[in-house]
Amino acid sequence: MEKFRVLIVDDEGEFVETIVKRLRDRGLEAEGALSGQEALDLLDEQEFDVCVLDYRMPGMDGIETLRHMKKKKPRMEVIMLTGHGSVESGIQGLQLGAYNYVMKPAPLKDLLHQMELAYERKLIEEERFKTLGAE
């Protein structure tokens, strides 16, 4: 599997810590952020391919964070994570450009598979952008 850079955003510190560690164990570059604002600040310093973003967070919520992220880094793919799951918020997230809307708890194996697919999409889009630019 190709290496890519992942950002995990969730207000539950323990969740972020565990998942970041397990992704690193698998050879991915992973960072965590505990709030939407922290994530946005991190995006100013570092590039990521895929972001896993919790829907419900105190302060700036997942949807608002997603909105800002897509403005800052339109090519970064975002997977929304949700605990309670509402169809309306799923539609909203996808409409704002999220790649997927995943119910918690998601087994790491499944989440990782979604991250790979999201990364594949990013590669296809970059490729397309390059060929467009070359024409």
């Binding site: 309670h84 799951g85 169809v87 889009e125």
Partner: peptide, 23 residues
């Protein structure tokens, strides 16, 4: 322009049904 990827339609449906199921 859509971005085409291989999709297991059944799998995609299952995960969206889970989202709708609670409501």
């Amino acid at each position: 322009e859509p971005v085409l990827q291989f999709v297991d339609v059944n799998e995609l449906i299952r995960s969206m049904v889970i989202v709708a199921e609670r409501q």
